[in-house]
Amino acid sequence: MYSKQIKIQNKTGLHARPASEFVSQAGKFKSKIELQRVGEEDKYNAKSIIMLLSLGLAQGEEAVLYADGEDEKEAVETLADLIASFKE
């Protein structure tokens, strides 16, 4: 298990195109990947667009990104970078 705290910087949040891009990247890793809003208990399947939308992370919110599996470290680092790179 590997994890990292991230903060949503872009205006749209983890919705629409950014969410779509995130899910398609997450799907490329073998590890189980989850997102959890800081201060909450529920973990959401980060390979699911529906789960991601239900989680609804908005600009300024913080979350923890978890991965568990053979490529966990690479998965978390790549996806954290992706979130930081969102502009719209």
Binding site: S20, S24, G27, N45, K47, S48, I49, I50
Partner: peptide
Amino acid sequence: YAHREILLDPAM
């Protein structure tokens, strides 16, 4: 494209 993404959603 968005519809296919939903159709293939692993959680659902």
